[in-house]
Design a protein around this nucleic acid. Structure first.
Length: 312
DNA sequence: CGACTTTGACCAGCGC
DNA sequence: GCGCTGGTCAAAGTCG
């Protein structure tokens, strides 16, 4: 928790400051809604890089709406309340979860996982693929392990949700396939797979050991099917046709795509501590920062409880 | 009875 | 090489 060395995979807060994060520079504490910046590592995250967004959502309806935006969350009937903290960045498969990266903030893993591309593919992964391809009979212990070809890991997206429940409803159906104790955390990590056939989306759910109120949900992969809840029409109804068209079928390719479409650039004063929304970007090109859709942002603002009128 | 969860075991990658 | 850790498997159990 005190190492000063810069981890190449987990840029420190200082690294962020050196990047193009005007709002962060102006307001370092905006990285989350706590009084003091909470290093993502302390949250038990894979704190690689980050676009983080925290929102205050009250009630399931809001959550549904926001969920619809991101495709990954397509809907929710949860009673989840409180903030959703969304981060984006690159996570590392073989995480170094404990080494601290001072003030590296809330994470949100996304985009390609550079490190994983080199080392992340495990033979298990290959085996899993074989299984999904119908090679169900061979068990893990007897499977050939000769193939060395690397499979690119799916992008991951971590969502931080302030919630009392661990497994947040997102409209998809998940089957739990594992649970592991997390090092240095009293809270276990649960592993889920989408129950839809041929959909290999996975998610991990864990509770931050730093702030037990925060649930860290990490999605991996993209759904290749319609969300059951979307089919029921609750989340989709909130989306504009254009956005829906691009997200409803298979979801956005990356959540940050939607972020960039939904959110204005992180202007100097809009996102800051205590705001319903605080975010910063990393690994997003400047042009992406510029992308915005007033309509969508308006809706997002609506979804975000809108109670903290800190917007400049 | 099917869907889902629990749980211990196993495996691979990484650091030392 | 060894130990640690994350991730996964699969049998058994649970639930509706």
């Amino acid at each position: 928790m005190s190492d000063e060395t810069e981890d190449p995979y987990y840029p420190s807060y200082n690294s962020y400051k050196n990047m193009e994060h005007p709002s962060l520079e102006d307001n370092p504490s905006m990285i989350n809604n706590h009084q003091t910046p909470t290093p993502s590592s302390q949250l038990g995250l894979d704190p690689s890089l980050y676009m983080s967004l925290s929102t205050s959502l009250h009630g399931s309806t809001d959550y549904d709406g926001l969920s619809g935006y991101f495709g990954t969350f397509c809907s929710s009937s949860t009673e989840d309340r409180g903030r959703i903290l969304i981060g984006a960045g690159e996570s590392v498969a073989r995480t170094k979860e404990n080494p601290s990266r001072p003030n590296s903030s809330i994470s949100f893993s996304s985009s390609q996982e550079a490190k994983e591309e080199h080392s992340g593919k495990t033979k298990k992964d290959e085996q899993a693929e074989e299984c999904e391809d119908g090679e169900e009979t061979s068990k893990k212990l007897s499977k050939p392990k000769t193939t060395k070809e690397k499979r690119q890991r799916e992008p991951r997206f971590a969502f931080l949700t302030k919630s009392e429940i661990d497994h947040l409803e997102d409209g998809y159906r998940w089957r739990k396939y594992g649970q592991k104790a997390v090092k240095n955390s009293p809270y276990p990590r649960s592993y889920y797979r989408c129950t839809s056939q041929k959909c290999n989306v996975k998610k991990r759910v864990e509770r931050s050991f730093q702030d037990p109120a925060i649930v860290i949900t990490t999605y991996e992969g993209q759904h290749n099917h319609l969300c059951p809840a979307t089919l029921r029409g609750n989340a989709a109804a909130m989306l504009s046709p254009s956005l829906l068209a691009s997200t409803a079928s298979v979801g956005p390719r990356f959540p940050q795509e939607l972020f960039t479409r939904l959110l204005p650039p992180p202007s100097n004063n809009y996102y800051h501590q205590g705001d319903p929304a605080s975010m910063f970007f990393q690994n997003l090109g400047p042009q992406q920062h510029q992308l915005q859709s007033p309509d969508h942002f308006g809706l997002l603002q609506h979804l975000m409880n809108g109670s903290h009128g800190h917007s400049s």
